[in-house]
C-alpha cells in the first residue's frame, strides 16, 4: 500500500518503521530539519520536508496514496491535512490522531470518521481493566462499542462440563473460534470446552461482563 504520514514525531517514526517492515511504501511530511535528518538516516528517502499545505501534499504523492495518516502534534493540522487529502486529493482512506478527545466528534461531523485518540484508548483499557483482568480486548470495532476479545479458560471454569448451546451466553456476543493447542475449533452447539482453551469472541462492550460470568468462577 502507498501511505502518506503527516507528522514525523515519535508516532510517525514508529509507524514508518512498522509500515516499511511490512513492505508498504511510505512518505512522511515533517517540517523540522532534525527530525527529517533522523528519518533519512534511518529509513532512506522517505521524507518531504515542510509544513503541510496543498503543494507539499502533492509533492509527497498524496494523490496516489491509498491512505493518509495524520499524526502531527496538533489537532488542527491533522484535521486540515485529512480534509485536503479526502476532498481535494481523493485519498480513499484517511486516519487522524486526535490529541484533545473533544475534537473527535468535530472530526467525525466533518467526515473524518477514523480517529485515534490515545486518551480514549487508555480510558477504555482502564475501564475494562476495572471490570476484568481475564478478558483481553484485541480490537475495538464500530465506534468502540463492539470488540473482539480473547479469553483463556481456567481449570475451574464453570463452562467446562457444558456444551455450547446450553451456555447462557449474552445475546449480543458470538464465539468466533476456539484455539486448542495448535488447532482451531469452530464452535458448534455441541462443542464442549477444555481447560486452557483460548476463545475468540465478538461482543458488545456491554456483553463483556456477562461473558466473564459464563467462563470464570
Amino acid at each position: 500500500m502507498n501511505v502518506v504520514i503527516v507528522g514525523g514525531g515519535t508516532v510517525g517514526y514508529h509507524l514508518t518503521k512498522a509500515l516499511l517492515a511490512r513492505g508498504h511504501e511510505v512518505t512522511v511530511i515533517e517540517p523540522n530539519e532534525d527530525r527529517c535528518r533522523l528519518f533519512t538516516e534511518e529509513y532512506g528517502e522517505v521524507v518531504v520536508r515542510g509544513e503541510c499545505d496543498v503543494a507539499l501534499l502533492r509533492r509527497a504523492g498524496t494523490e496516489r496514496a491509498n491512505v493518509l495518516i495524520a499524526v502531527a502534534d496538533q489537532d488542527e493540522t491533522n484535521l486540515i491535512a485529512c480534509l485536503l487529502a479526502r476532498r481535494l486529493l481523493k485519498v480513499p482512506r484517511v486516519i487522524a490522531r486526535v490529541i484533545d478527545p473533544r475534537s473527535r466528534t468535530t472530526f467525525e461531523k466533518l467526515g473524518i470518521d477514523l480517529t485515534v485518540s490515545s486518551t480514549g484508548i487508555i480510558c477504555n483499557l482502564i475501564e475494562q481493566g476495572a471490570i476484568t483482568t481475564e478478558i483481553l480486548p484485541l480490537l475495538a470495532l464500530g465506534k468502540g462499542d463492539l470488540e473482539i476479545v480473547e479469553l483463556v479458560l481456567p481449570p475451574d471454569s464453570p463452562a467446562l462440563s457444558v456444551s455450547l448451546k446450553d451456555l447462557p451466553l449474552p445475546a449480543d456476543s458470538v464465539l468466533i473460534s476456539i484455539i486448542r493447542g495448535d488447532q482451531i475449533v469452530f464452535p458448534r452447539g455441541s462443542t464442549t470446552f477444555l481447560p486452557n482453551d483460548t476463545i475468540l469472541a465478538l461482543t458488545s462492550t456491554k456483553g463483556v461482563e456477562q461473558l466473564k460470568r459464563v467462563f470464570y468462577r
Binding site: 496543498v54 486540515i80 476532498r87
Partner: peptide, 24 residues
C-alpha cells in the same frame, strides 16, 4: 460547515497556506 455561519473570514500568516483556504 457545521454551523452555517453566513460570513466567515480568516487571517493567514504564511502565504503558502492561502491555497488551503481556497481549496476548503
Amino acid at each position: 460547515e457545521l454551523y452555517q455561519v453566513p460570513r466567515v473570514i480568516i487571517g493567514i500568516i504564511n502565504p503558502r497556506r492561502l491555497e488551503i483556504a481556497q481549496e476548503l
